[in-house]
């Protein structure tokens, strides 16, 4: 009797084991899948996704919104080749039409003033100042490889979500599981205006959907959000980017209306000569 009972017990155990082990194994596997990427890998992947196109031509509208909700609009065309050559030409409003920036490697930046028919070189410590009245800094406008300047860390625990409104916070909370949350701290020796960034990288396509910028005092200062992330041709692109400066209570939306990738833009286009062209 006792023996029988014992075997039955074993049977049950074995059964249980048989049933449980595979599921345990499976769990282990998915854990492994998650752990497959280190924070750095995620960041690098994200960088490469965001900077994937060889070149791009973008028609966009920048909407500047002040704390009273008043809006100012600007139309611009942006040409970019690789991550270092960029030209932005303003199309509207009429009185700044033709105004253009040319950004070349090694901090060479030029500016064309159509009303004076003059090109001026801009020497820069400007990386962290506002670009043309928007909430984007010159740095933000550039396509940076975050991995070059920041040390990422994967945020394990659920982070406390802070945002502009309770509603927004809820929305984010529900989306948290779809993202890797990276905490970026500036690499040693690199001075940044931000003490850290919290980057929300989409798990499905590694697109950096949201970047929270924290001030040196550790307060949430600016939030960049990329919305309407779609695949155009073979690249992921966000059609709407918003930068919200919580301190200034000012935000800028950048809406992309047209985008062309990999047209084989010539280097020549990124020259002072072309800066003047209509």
């Amino acid at each position: 009797m006792k023996e029988k009972k014992f075997f039955m017990m074993i049977e049950v155990w074995v059964l249980a084991l048989v049933m449980i082990v595979p599921s345990l194994a499976q769990e282990k596997k998915s854990e492994a899948q998650k752990k497959e990427f280190t924070a750095l890998e995620i960041l690098k992947k994200s960088d490469s996704v965001a900077n994937a196109p060889k070149d791009q031509e973008i028609i966009m509208e920048m909407i500047l919104i002040d704390k009273k909700g008043k809006q100012k609009k600007r139309g611009a065309k942006m040409l970019q080749k690789g991550s270092e050559k960029r030209m932005i030409k303003f199309l509207s409003p009429a009185d700044v039409k033709g105004l253009a920036f040319l950004d070349l490697p090694n901090d060479m930046m030029y500016l064309y003033l159509p009303a004076f028919k003059k090109i001026r070189r801009i020497a820069s410590h400007v990386k962290n100042t506002s670009f043309a009245g928007t909430d984007f800094t010159y740095d933000d406008m550039a396509s940076i490889n975050y991995a070059d300047e920041w040390v990422p860390g994967l945020m394990e625990s659920k982070k406390e979500i802070v945002s502009v409104s309770a509603e927004k916070e809820k929305e984010l909370e529900s989306k948290e599981c779809e993202h890797y949350l990276l905490e970026l701290k500036p690499k040693e020796g690199i001075k940044k205006d931000y003490s850290k960034l919290v980057m929300w990288v989409r798990k499905d396509n590694f697109y950096p959907a949201r970047i929270e910028h924290y001030s040196r005092e550790g307060k949430l200062w600016k939030i960049m959000e990329r919305r309407k992330i779609v695949k155009e041709a073979k690249y992921w692109v966000s059609k709407e980017t918003e930068m919200n400066d919580l301190k200034k209570e000012h935000k800028t939306k950048m809406l992309i209306s047209e985008v062309k990738f990999d047209q084989g833009l010539k280097d020549e286009l990124f020259s002072q000569r072309y800066l003047k062209r209509k």
């Binding site: 009185d95 700044v96 105004l99 009303a115 004076f116 009245g133 909430d135 200034k248």
Partner: peptide
Amino acid sequence: IPETKEEVANLWFFIEGQE
């Protein structure tokens, strides 16, 4: 101060958004 509106607008562009 320059003579034309366009010239003013060109110069204005840089200070736009400054605190």
